[in-house]
Write a protein that binds this DNA or RNA. Structure first.
Length: 1050
RNA sequence: GGGCCUUUAGCUCAGUUGGUUAGAGCGCGCCUCUGAUAAGGGCGAGGUCUCAGGUUCGAGCCCUGAAAGGCCCA
């Protein structure tokens, strides 16, 4: 016996029961343990941070991470699914700062780094239970007990060893990076912090003359909104392709001057004032022109104060010249490096000018703006000064305007490996494919050195020690090395600040004291190191590392292109000159039901629990897999997930429930199919099923999640709404013959196979089906569907011809139903005949072959192919553009016209007979073949017809008294069946049936007594008023009246 | 400003190498079927395939440009 299945599907009960089963049988660990010895399939978990609640986007990533390991496990692979947690970084620090009410960075120093970091360590796992609970509930199988944690000493030590490796290869160096910096808080801000603080503000807008050295009386005109950066000016950038003009302009006092600026901006700059253009040139012609420096506060050793070319210069605003101060802009810095310009750091950490900038020493730079403008005016260098309103970033903590500052920091020389990273990337399979050469490829080919340093507290310390006296630097690659150099055993030392900072070394160069540099490293370096650091490689687990590197599969959302995808790829390239992942699925972002980004501030964040509680994990997973291509952003709402439940899950469940109900009634067991006599319908279903197995397997192998899921849904629909609908009677009938055996065997195979195909995507429902259909009957089977073997498909069972034929039958049934509808003949009323017109002789044979099936489906006494010579009165020809157009190209319209102008009847007859039709088109003979034209027919009067394309159904709608009586009998049966349901009878209950009716109906009941009794399981048909015990109903239909009562027959 | 993606019915999405009258599901109205069904079937309403050019016998699909939205970068 199969365990009885309620036709009502309770998603929570089912999924919770499965969850309990997995737990009690430790199924997850078995999926790893039982595959030891199998080929390895390597999956890397991109570590999330558990300092916030997991949201829908995390569910998305996690279910996509889950699907391939499950699949590969069923294919016999050993998939170790080690989890991981990202624990360092600013987000964690900010949470703690908020909790402590800190406003500025110095608060942390005052509070104590040790205490602060202790809180960070806790906070990193503040929501760990939430994460574990959700991970469990959605069925994401990942080993969290053995998860790697980035703050562990072992992890940090591995990261150090990588950095040491880079250090030894001279890939780690100190340089300058322009960062958004809050002078009040004394700290650079991360992009994410900057994004929070944009506000509209008014800044000066000044136009400044830069007199040319070699052309007296001529000046470059530059524009800036940050006059305070002018003392740092060392060059001017022009766009090579933009047109520049020299204009002559009358001075207010007296005489004229010549100014150079972009032609497109002349009007804007001069506000329409008439100016005389005396020369015109491309920007590249200006290259190298020297101008007089604005200021000379700082000594300059390198070439400076000349025009350079840069593509980023625009003619949107300003003058078409950009003043370059490498210390105060990222682009300026890049230009400065490119041309080896000096870097003038004129501003101190607190945002005030340094003493060397004598007139404004100690003045906060923003306050100095008007002073500088005055000073320029005095010297006659100010062309104009205005106000400019724009959005500018402010510190989100203290509202101080941020300054873009060059700060000394540490870099990794990734740009040296740019080409190699691009090459290696070309060997990676990206899904979707456009990311490879698009977003990721572009990012790689624009690679700049990785800015590694962070001036923060909670993170992996940069393991570089520097001599206080002679500046000698040394990188540490292990705790052992640190111990040796420090002269004491440091095993067990917390490698975080402040403890690691307390370790000082002796300088090998001068014998002085070496202290650690203050920086931490970028958290992305932590996560990008996970292939090595998760194993504490190279200190331990060398074999495991080699076995688990590189990854076969990783998956994250698209925002990780510059995050984890990049850090994995860069570190792997620099360290081992190879890829660290071979296949990567890149997910789009989750939007709300209206296509808006989910964000806390919009208040449109969907709580995953809400959806899980309402619809279950499987439905949520299925929606995420099937809603659209994985790389696209996808809309998400509880309603959309609910549709999955209604359309797909319930259809499958009911098929399953139907099977179990009848198999139990009949005592059918798997293996009972020996005498099975398979019908065409069975062959068709198996053919479709094996084609499905083939397609889903191929899709899985290609990381095509849509292709691996949507076809299952289509199959289940056909299984339920065609196979089962057309097979119901085979299960009901009381004799147990070969036909019934075949039906059971076929349906059983389909359900078991579907459960396996669904295992990676709907792990809960798949398990429920498998437990009952397989385990219940065969205790020796693998104890979980997730330990079972992925189904093999049998190519000999896939019959494309059969599949096409059945598709035609379904189409004809659909057209037949349409004809019934038009004729206003409900299906319960039998009709004498349905005749079909189809496209060709082969299709006509299909009509004959499946006549029984169509008769049953359409409730007609006879199905036949329409006799196209005798019955059709009108033909029309439909030239097929695909065939004819491809063959004749530009002559197609003429051929089409000629064909349509011809008498359709003789042409149609030839074509239907398989003969070509000869046409004369523009003086040339053209033979049009039957497959190039679709022949359509119209049926004679007296038929009810419906057609679609070449297919036409004609019904004989005249009713004989016998047909009417049969219709009444079916109507009668229908009322009784309803009543059985109302009376809550068991499907197998036998009944006593009372009835009283008007004469027409009485006659029909008499005629079809046996049919009625068989259909309704009536053992005693009584023509009288119902007994007291009976359940009774009254009805009126087709002009007849009826009272019926049922009671269980004892 | 740059890169990538998206735009097809009220909503969510398909749409093969360009080829018949652009499809499905949900939702809506009418009808119908049903002892597996929370379902199924039929009909109907609902589309200038974002827009403008171009290539072609023929464009939802290819090319160019634009617009709107999204993501990333500057």
């Amino acid at each position: 016996m199969f365990r009885p299945v309620s036709p009502k599907f309770n998603v929570t009960l089912v999924e919770e029961a499965v969850q309990r089963y997995w737990k009690s049988h430790d199924v997850f660990h078995k999926t790893m343990d039982q595959r030891i010895g199998g080929p390895e399939y390597v999956f890397y978990e991109g570590p999330p941070t558990a300092n916030g609640k997991p949201g829908v986007h995390h569910v998305l990533a996690r279910v996509f991470k889950d699907i391939f390991p499950r699949y590969k496990t069923m294919q016999g692979f050993h998939v170790s699914r080690r989890g991981g947690w990202d624990t360092h970084g600013l987000p964690v620090e900010i949470e703690v700062e908020k909790k402590l009410g800190f406003k500025v960075k110095q608060d942390i120093d005052a509070y104590g780094i040790d205490k602060f970091n202790a809180l960070c360590r806790e906070s990193a796992f503040a929501y760990i239970q939430e994460w574990e609970r959700l991970t469990d509930r959605i069925g994401y199988w990942v080993d969290l007990e053995t998860a790697y944690i980035t703050f562990k000493n072992e992890y940090i030590e591995s990261v150090w060893s990588i950095l040491k490796n880079f250090w030894e290869k001279d890939l780690l160096y100190q340089g300058f990076k322009v960062v958004p910096y809050c002078p009040r808080c004394g700290t650079p801000l991360s992009d994410h912090e900057v994004a929070q603080g944009y506000a509209e503000t008014v800044d000066p807008s000044v136009f400044v003359r830069l007199p040319l050295v070699d052309e007296p009386g001529t000046s470059l005109l530059v524009w800036t909104t940050t006059p305070w950066t002018l003392p740092g000016n060392v060059a001017v950038a022009a766009h090579p392709e933009v047109d520049y003009v020299v204009v002559e302009h009358a001075l207010p006092e007296d005489g004229t001057e010549k100014l150079i600026l972009a032609e497109a901006l002349v009007e804007k700059v001069f506000h329409g004032e008439a100016v005389k253009v005396v020369n015109r040139m491309k920007g590249k012609a200006l290259k190298g022109k020297r101008y007089q420096p604005l200021y000379t506060f700082l000594p300059v050793q390198k070439q400076a104060y000349y025009v350079v070319l840069a593509d980023y210069v625009t003619t949107e605003d300003g003058t078409g010249f950009v003043h370059i101060a490498p210390a105060f802009g990222a682009e300026d810095m890049a230009v400065g490096l490119e041309h080896d310009l000096p870097l003038l750091m004129t501003v101190a950490d607190d945002g005030t000018f340094i003493p060397a900038v004598r007139p404004w020493a100690g003045v906060f730079v923003k306050k100095a703006d008007p002073l500088i403008i005055d000073e320029l005016h005095t010297r006659g260098l100010l062309f104009r000064s205005e106000n400019y309103t724009h959005t500018y970033p402010f510190c989100w903590r203290c509202d101080t305007p941020l300054l873009y500052y060059a700060r000394p920091t540490w870099y990794i020389r990734t740009s040296q490996f740019k080409d190699r990273m691009v090459e290696l990337n070309n060997t990676i399979n990206w899904y979707p494919g456009h990311i490879k050469s698009g977003r990721f490829g572009n990012w790689l080919s624009n690679n700049v050195d990785w800015a590694l340093g962070r001036e923060r507290y909670w993170g992996t310390p940069l393991p570089v020690w520097e001599c206080v006296d002679c500046r000698h630097q040394h990188a540490i690659g292990s705790v052992a090395e640190l111990s040796t150099l420090a002269g004491r055993d440091l095993t067990g030392l917390d490698l975080h600040r402040p403890y690691v900072d307390e370790v000082t070394l002796g300088c090998p160069e001068c014998g002085g004291k070496m202290k650690r540099v203050p920086e931490l490293i970028d958290v992305w370096f932590d996560s990008g190191s996970m292939p090595y650091a998760q194993w504490h490689y190279p200190f331990e687990n060398v074999e495991q590392f080699h076995q688990q590197y590189p990854a076969d599969y990783i998956c994250e959302a698209v925002d990780q292109t510059r995050g984890w995808f990049y850090s994995l790829h860069a570190i792997s390239t620099l360290l081992n000159d190879q890829v660290s992942f071979k296949n990567v699925v890149c997910l789009g972002l989750i939007q709300d039901g209206n296509g808006q980004k989910m964000s806390k501030s919009r208040g449109n964040v969907t709580d995953p629990w809400e959806v899980l509680n309402a619809n279950g994990a499987d439905a949520m997973r299925w929606y995420l897999y099937t809603a659209g291509p994985p790389g696209q952003e996808r809309r998400f709402s509880s309603e959309l997930v609910g549709e999955v439940l209604r359309n797909f899950t319930l259809t499958l469940w009911n098929t399953y429930s139907f099977f179990v109900t009848y198999a139990n009634l009949d005592g059918w067991q798997p293996g009972d199919g020996q005498q099975a006599q398979y019908s065409d319908l069975d062959h068709w279903l198996r053919s479709t099923l094996h084609a499905l197995v083939r397609d889903v397997t191929t899709a899985m192998e290609n990381y095509d999640v849509l292709g691996a899921t949507r076809p299952i849904e289509a199959f289940v629909d056909q299984l339920s709404n065609w196979y089962l609908r057309r097979s119901r009677r085979r299960f009901w009938k009381s004799e147990s013959d070969g036909d019934k055996q075949a039906a059971y065997a076929t349906l059983y195979e389909a359900l078991v196979t579907v459960s396996k195909l669904l295992a990676p995507s709907m792990p809960f429902l798949a398990e429920e089906l498998y437990q009952n259909l397989v385990m219940q009957m065969n205790p020796n089977a693998p104890e979980s569907v997730h330990l079972a073997v992925w189904p093999a498909f049998d190519p000999t069972l896939v019959d494309d011809k059969l599949n096409r034929d059945m598709a035609l039958v379904m189409k004809l049934a659909s057209v037949g139903h349409a004809a019934r509808n038009k004729a206003n003949r409900k299906v319960r009323q039998p009709l004498a005949e349905a005749a079909f017109s189809v496209g060709n002789a082969d299709e006509a044979r299909v009509v004959q072959a499946y006549a029984d099936l169509l008769e049953d489906e359409l409730n007609v006494k006879r199905v036949r192919a329409l006799d196209t010579t005798g019955e059709a009165v009108a033909y029309s020809l439909n030239p097929l553009p695909k065939q004819l157009g491809q063959k004749y190209g530009s002559r197609f319209p003429a051929i089409r016209k000629t064909l349509l102008a011809a008498d359709p009847e003789p042409a149609a007859r030839r074509l239907l007979d398989g003969q070509p039709v000869d046409l004369e088109v523009d003086g040339e003979k053209v033979a049009v073949l039957p497959e190039e034209v679709e022949v359509r027919v119209q049926a004679r009067e007296g038929y009810a017809v419906a057609s679609e394309g070449a297919y036409l159904a004609a019904l004989v709608t005249d009713l004989t008294p016998a047909l009417v009586r049969e219709g009444l009998a079916r109507e009668f049966v229908r009322r009784v069946q309803d009543l059985r349901k109302t009376a809550d009878l068991q499907i197998s209950d036998r009944i006593r049936l009372y009835y009283q009716a008007t004469p027409g109906l009485v006659e029909a009941v008499a005629d079809f007594k046996e049919y009625i009794m068989a259909e309704t399981l009536t053992v005693d048909l009584v023509s009288s008023a119902p007994s007291e015990a009976a359940t009774v109903s009254q009805a009126e239909f087709d002009g007849e009246q009826l009272t019926v009562g049922v009671e269980v027959a004892r």
